[in-house]
Amino acid sequence: MNKLELQKTANEIRKGIVTAVHSAKSGHPGGSLSAADLFTYLYFEELNVDPKEPDKADRDRFVLSKGHCAPGLYSTLAYRGFFPVEDLKTLRHVGSYLQGHPDKKHIPGVDMSSGSLGQGISAAVGMALSAKLSGDDYRVYTLLGDGEIQEGQVWEASMFAGARKLDNLVVIVDNNGLQIDGSVADVCSPYPIDKKFEAFNFHVINIDAHDFDQIAAAFNEAKETKGCPTAIIAHSVKGKGVSFMENQASWHGSAPNDEQYAVAMADLEKVGEALCQK
């Protein structure tokens, strides 16, 4: 995909996120929307994955460490062809395979059942180590929230990854600055995030999480980096694309009502129309 195609796809994925959470009347739209461009690039450009063969042995692995942002992953998997887009409307419904956190057993394309914060990165580190031990060339990617990195387990896993020089591992931090209780800087500041990862022997790249040129350059740089894992600190906007959700901690885990849903979809339709005129 070219840059414009990626932007259009990300906008459709954002519509899917808002539709799923509205239908569920619960869920986590803020962090799903902030990571939508990252999800888009990963699944439409970066990852070696195949919707027709979701469990192929040589596929790249992705772990959504911030598992509550499942609406973002689900919408991306649906638009990538892993399951029908219309199934997004069953999010969190009784009997649906699309529940509040990713489920490896029931959802095609999910590599790790996640949701307990801090644990996803540990699993990703284990996958990367496994590839090294077995001589496989697949790569492992994991997406963390900036509130999540307040968990000590994140740094234990990072210390291990740096010590083992896992250059097939890419840790992405969705740095939107907000968590459920407010600003991450006020709750329990993780800053400076880049310096912390550097201290654990990571190659660190800071990017604008909504600029596809910077996203592409970062992932290419990560591939070229040898002898250490890479951490991409992706500076993003919580609720990106929906006017009343942007930079509002209250939309960390709230669902829009019918009126709010209409406004959100109108916002995203305007973005789509603008992109079509380019």
Rank of each mutant, 00 (worst) to 15 (best):
H101P: 06
H101I: 02
P102Q: 10
D103R: 13
K104W: 05
K105S: 13
K105A: 14
K105P: 00
H106I: 14
H106K: 15
I107Y: 04
I107V: 15
P108D: 10
P108Y: 10
P108M: 11
P108V: 11
P108I: 11
G109L: 12
G109H: 13
V110F: 11
V110C: 11
D111K: 13
D111P: 12
M112V: 13
M112A: 15
M112F: 15
S113N: 06
S113P: 05
S114Q: 05
S114N: 01
S114L: 05
G115P: 02
S116A: 14
S116W: 02
S116V: 04
L117H: 03
G118C: 03
G118M: 03
G118Y: 02
G118F: 07
Q119K: 03
Q119E: 05
G120V: 10
G120Q: 05
G120E: 04
G120Y: 08
G120I: 09
I121K: 06
I121M: 08
I121T: 05
I121N: 03
S122Q: 02
S122K: 01
S122R: 04
A123H: 03
A124Q: 01
A124M: 00
A124K: 01
V125S: 03
G126L: 07
G126P: 09
M127R: 09
A128W: 09
L129E: 12
S130W: 12
S130Y: 14
K132V: 13
K132W: 00
K132S: 05
L133S: 00
S134L: 14
S134N: 13
G135L: 12
D136G: 10
D137L: 12
D137K: 15
Y138W: 12
R139Q: 09
R139L: 08
R139C: 03
V140N: 01
V140A: 02
V140I: 14
V140S: 04
Y141E: 04
Y141C: 08
T142L: 07
L143D: 01
L144R: 14
L144A: 14
L144H: 11
L144T: 09
G145M: 04
G145R: 09
G145K: 11
G145L: 12
D146L: 09
D146H: 10
D146A: 13
G147P: 04
E148C: 03
E151R: 14
G152S: 02
G152V: 06
Q153A: 12
V154C: 14
W155T: 10
E156A: 09
E156C: 07
A157F: 05
A157H: 11
A157N: 02
A157D: 07
S158K: 01
S158N: 04
M159G: 13
M159N: 15
F160G: 02
A161I: 06
A161T: 07
G162D: 02
G162N: 07
G162H: 06
A163T: 10
R164A: 11
R164Y: 15
R164I: 02
R164E: 14
K165G: 03
L166E: 02
L166F: 06
L166N: 01
L166W: 05
L166Q: 02
N168I: 02
N168E: 02
L169P: 04
V170W: 00
V170A: 01
V171S: 12
V171R: 05
V171C: 13
V171H: 07
V171K: 07
V171L: 00
V171Q: 03
I172T: 11
V173L: 06
V173D: 03
V173G: 04
V173P: 10
N175R: 15
N175Q: 12
N176E: 09
G177H: 08
G177Y: 09
G177P: 07
G177I: 12
Q179H: 11
